[in-house]
């Protein structure tokens, strides 16, 4: 998941200052916007882990955030220029002009950490015996239904195996998986001409 920090503030000094501080701690890409409406240009964004630092978030409409939240992991940080400690809607965290560089670093780091918990970690990238069986049948050109019948499992299980296979190997297309199967000796190429399969 791509990480991105978006700073939305009308003050150029604050935008650039925050960027400079963040750059000294993080290599993440940083986007500076003057106005919240500029965010509309980015509403098609997908699969990002976003941290949005927003000036006085309570006064802003949340439509665009709801849009972004559909396809991204979004954390909002309120930038409160007036030093007030009032908590604002939808913001777990806040910054002000008094926040030190180290505190900023900590807040951002915590945001990333909280996000990481939800991403599933694969236990191993090795294919299981069952996955290899499924892969072999996929490579031979069988449909999910036939694979399910042959292995006495449900189609749903076949699909779930296929999803894991693609995640582990990084290969999605059937012909790509066939090449993988041949290279890893899951298919006997003496009895079948590989050219017919790919």
């Amino acid at each position: 998941m791509n990480k991105l920090i978006i700073i939305i503030h009308t003050s150029e000094i604050i935008r650039k200052g925050l960027t400079a501080i963040l750059r000294s701690f993080f290599t993440t890409e940083i986007l500076q916007l003057e106005n919240i409406n500029d965010l509309h240009s980015y509403k098609e964004m997908k699969n990002h882990s976003l941290i949005i630092i927003l000036q006085n978030s309570s006064e802003n409409s949340c439509d665009i955030f709801l849009n972004l939240k559909k396809n991204n992991q979004v954390k909002l940080i309120d930038f409160n220029g007036t030093h007030s400690k009032n908590s604002t809607i939808n913001c777990e965290r806040s910054l002000s002009l008094d926040t030190t560089a180290l505190e900023i670093q900590e807040i951002i780091a915590n945001c990333w950490k909280a996000g990481d918990k939800t991403t599933r970690m694969l236990e191993s990238d090795e294919l299981t015996t069952r996955e290899k069986e499924v892969l072999r049948l996929v490579a031979l050109g069988h449909s999910n239904k036939i694979i399910a019948d042959k292995l006495f499992i449900s189609i749903h299980t076949v699909i779930s195996h296929r999803k894991n296979i693609s995640e582990k190997t990084g290969i999605k297309s059937i012909s790509g998986l066939t090449v993988y199967a041949i290279l890893n000796n899951l298919i006997d190429t003496n009895s079948i001409n590989p050219g017919d399969l790919i």
């Binding site: 190997t169 790509g176 993988y180």
Partner: peptide
């Protein structure tokens, strides 16, 4: 897109 990506994976990994 999928196939192009697979091509890269095959070269890099296998």
């Amino acid at each position: 897109d999928e196939k192009l990506n697979d091509l890269k994976s095959l070269i890099i990994k296998y």
